[in-house]
């Protein structure tokens, strides 16, 4: 539960910390987890452009994994990967 008083909140409900929702971890919603087989991956970045939750991590133009803190496990990346390098695994099952 929130505890800030009215007078300590910025006027009129404005939010002055841009991008603060990163602190809200939607990864907890996930039932299935994407996993990538980098041996197959061609770094085409298709998964990245289609991820609704900015959860495909790209570094230096290479696909480097998933942001499990926020990935909701929708499976779009796996469905769209042209070389089927991504598989969806039941969350909690190794």
């Amino acid at each position: 539960m929130a505890n800030e008083g009215s007078s300590s909140l910025p006027a009129g409900g404005m939010i002055i910390e841009a991008g603060s929702s990163k602190k809200y971890k939607t990864g907890e919603w996930r039932a299935q987890r994407p996993e990538v087989d980098k041996a197959k991956c061609t770094d085409c970045l298709t998964c990245w452009i289609y991820c609704p939750d900015n959860s495909v991590m790209v570094k230096d133009e290479k696909m480097v994994g998933f942001k499990y803190s926020h990935c909701k496990g929708c499976g779009i990346c796996a469905n769209q990967c042209p070389v089927k390098a991504i598989t969806m695994k039941e969350e909690g099952v190794e």
Partner: peptide, 16 residues
């Protein structure tokens, strides 16, 4: 410009 942590359903097209 739009970051993660939004609460749209998994697989929603709107943020894409």
């Amino acid at each position: 410009r739009l970051v993660e942590g939004h609460r749209l359903c998994a697989g929603c097209a709107e943020p894409i």
